[in-house]
Design a protein around this nucleic acid. Structure first.
Length: 295
DNA sequence: TACCAGGAGAGCG
DNA sequence: CGCTCTCATGGT
């Protein structure tokens, strides 16, 4: 008799660690028994196995499509990677983190998380979000013996807070941005559901009307939450990667880089961007943490 | 200790 | 348009 709290999601070439740990999401923790995190209001533990991904929840499930959607296990990765030009840099990046995928996240959580992300290291972003959830998120059911876990606080919940509450999560100057964004979403002045149905430039423009949301964060939300796989977020790392690998170290203005990325990599440019991001970060730090600094 | 981090926005020439 | 500054915080 099958255990309704467990399932095996079939997947080929799924690099779970790279996917959960490549700066597209911030709440997963690697433990003895696998990766533990929250998807929506469900506690989840994931483990990479030969046939795909073994998943475990706290409560019985009758339908696992929410998790398949989140993990994008049905996406045929080789078909996507085959659309890229076979130049040396992108091939090296793909080789360095084979099986890395883009997740399909909740728009509000993704938006709020990336509002908190600007000029922060990934470890710090994770800390900020952890505090935010622990203080203001709804508790979710966890298996016996597990530490308490919390859902990501809704826009309405955050809108009801004071700026000081958010600053207490150590998010600094991002606090007023998150608060104002929560207000606009909670009041329905910006409908995150409606953005789903807009073309990408319109959805991007809509996101950028929010305080603290510029081109980079808008592109992250389009790519990580709205499935716009041609969105091409340009942060310091991707900028660095493109300049070094495709422009022989010259400085190139962001607009030109973005244009290059989308032209060169095509309809799945966002995937290419994620590989380059993860690749250059691994190689800049070195596998064991030394080898820092400029070349 | 300095430098830097998955930026954005305003001011200025 | 491009450049510079500020914003808050702490990891490395």
């Amino acid at each position: 008799m099958p255990d309704p709290t467990r399932i095996l999601l079939p997947a080929r070439e799924y690099n779970l660690a790279a996917t959960l740990n490549s700066g597209q999401t911030f709440r997963w923790r690697s433990g003895e028994e696998g990766w533990e995190g929250i998807v929506g209001d469900r506690w989840v533990r994931l483990r990479a196995v030969r046939e795909g991904i073994a998943a475990e929840t706290a409560a019985p499930q009758t339908d696992w499509t929410w998790l398949e959607r989140y993990l994008q296990t049905r996406v045929e990765l080789p078909r996507i990677l085959a659309t890229f030009p076979a130049d040396e840099p992108i091939c090296a990046a793909i080789e360095a983190c084979r099986g890395l995928r883009l997740l399909r996240q909740d728009p509000w959580e993704c938006l709020a998380s990336f509002i908190c992300s600007s000029t922060k290291q990934i470890v710090q972003i994770a800390q900020i979000i952890s505090r935010l959830c622990a203080r203001f998120g709804e508790p979710v059911a966890v298996p016996a013996g597990q530490t308490p876990a919390f859902a990501f606080p809704s826009a309405r919940r955050i809108a009801a807070l004071a700026e000081a509450d958010l600053r207490a999560c150590q998010m600094g100057f991002r606090a007023p941005h998150l608060l104002a964004a929560a207000h606009r979403v909670a009041r329905g002045e910006l409908s995150l559901d409606r953005l789903q149905r807009l073309d990408t430039p319109s959805a991007r423009a809509g996101l950028m009307t929010l305080p603290g949301v510029g081109p980079k964060i808008a592109d992250c939300v389009l790519l990580f939450a709205y499935g716009r796989q041609d969105a091409f977020p340009l942060d310091v790392w991707v900028t660095r990667a493109l300049c070094e690998l495709y422009f022989s170290g010259r400085r190139v203005p962001p607009a030109r880089l973005r244009e290059f990325g989308q032209q060169h990599f095509g309809p799945f440019a966002g995937y290419a961007q994620q590989y380059l991001f993860h690749y250059i970060r691994i190689h800049r730090r070195g596998p064991t943490g030394q080898n820092r600094g400029r070349t």
